[in-house]
């Protein structure tokens, strides 16, 4: 692998890993506070899956980079400007409708991405994608079912679900943005072209949104910047909390 491709792959793995770490962390904030006991278990399950995927991706990122950083060094010692997650992932968890709609939008996109990644020319990435794909199918099923229930449940749940969609929509497009690093990986057969995935994602989310009696918000300018480290104000606070022990005791073993 030439240096440019290697560097692109590190970026890609950080992007995929950070998406799941940050989103998993947001999901974990529900623990002990979910609307019903069964959902405490379900949301913890989602969070665990995502943090598990993040761990594998960040580990591979560190190995590919070859500078001695493991998954913990990457998770706990990078500043916000070095995180590469999409903005949508770092938004505060909001109410249950916001959490569910965000999860749904993300998981469907993730599903298509992973279905493509199981055909990657990169063996380890294929292997991570194969495992993550199974779990992501379940995430789509769980979040999709809740999207229907919230949209077509009561007037209040419908209003909250629509408000969540309206708030999230301008962040969703970032999931399909590509730059030269992505193009390089597409040429190498390592990562998929996201362009053809976007209409598939749109068709699937539109179907569920409409069955949920909700409306697809109008698409305008898509907020962006996460892929190059330009985040919202939320990420800094989240990392302050997440990284506190490693920052307070540099080099300690836990």
């Amino acid at each position: 692998m030439d240096d440019a491709t290697r560097a692109a792959l590190v970026q890609y793995l950080l992007r995929c890993g950070d998406d799941r770490l940050v989103l998993g962390h947001r999901l974990s904030e529900w623990c002990g506070h979910a609307p019903i006991l069964e959902e405490d278990i379900a949301l913890a399950n989602l969070a665990l899956d995502l943090i598990g995927h993040a761990t594998l991706l960040l580990k591979l990122a560190g190995e590919t980079e070859g500078a001695g950083r493991d998954e913990d060094a990457l998770a706990y010692l990078r500043e916000a400007i070095d995180f590469r997650n999409i903005l949508m992932a770092e938004l505060p968890k909001g109410d249950f409708a916001f959490t569910i709609m965000r999860q749904f939008l993300f998981s469907v996109a993730s599903l298509y991405q992973l279905e493509a990644l199981v055909r990657s020319t990169h063996a380890e990435l294929r292997s991570i994608a194969t495992k993550a794909l199974k779990e992501t199918r379940y995430h789509v099923r769980h979040a999709g079912e809740w999207a229907l229930k919230l949209g077509d449940g009561t007037e209040e749940s419908h209003a909250r679900a629509q408000a969540a969609l309206d708030a999230l929509w301008r962040f969703a497009g970032e999931m399909f943005l590509m730059d030269e690093a992505d193009e390089r990986l597409v040429r190498a057969g390592i990562a998929p072209d996201l362009a053809p995935l976007e209409p598939k994602w749109r068709a699937q989310v539109t179907d569920v949104i409409e069955r949920a009696t909700l409306s697809v918000p109008a698409s305008g300018y898509m907020q962006r910047g996460g892929r190059v480290g330009r985040h919202t104000e939320h990420l800094g606070h989240m990392l302050s909390e997440m990284q506190i022990l490693q920052r307070s005791y540099p080099g300690a073993i836990w």
Partner: peptide, 12 residues
């Protein structure tokens, strides 16, 4: 488990 319908009972 507690659930409102068969699909969510299966998931729970």
């Amino acid at each position: 488990v507690h659930a409102v319908d068969a699909e969510s009972a299966l998931q729970n």
